[in-house]
Amino acid sequence: MKRRDFLKWTALSSAGLALPCGLAALGRMAHAARGPDLVVVRGTSTPQIVRAALDALGG
């Protein structure tokens, strides 16, 4: 295989790997590690419950 063909082939295949399905799977894996799907926070200080919600979702 010529060097030029090799470069072409690698470029194409890495592009293929980066297609949406590949990305989504990666996303799901990352997501599972991150914690809860939904956070429900209750408290009388509104700014604090918003902050707590964001913290619980993974900062």
């Binding site: 939904l38 956070v39 429900v40 926070v41 509104t46």
Partner: peptide
């Protein structure tokens, strides 16, 4: 008055809750 927020990345899940 519920003093609550619900947060998430899945809009359907948030609405469902």
């Amino acid at each position: 008055r519920l003093d609550t927020v619900v947060a998430g990345t899945d809009q359907v899940a948030v609405d469902s809750f």
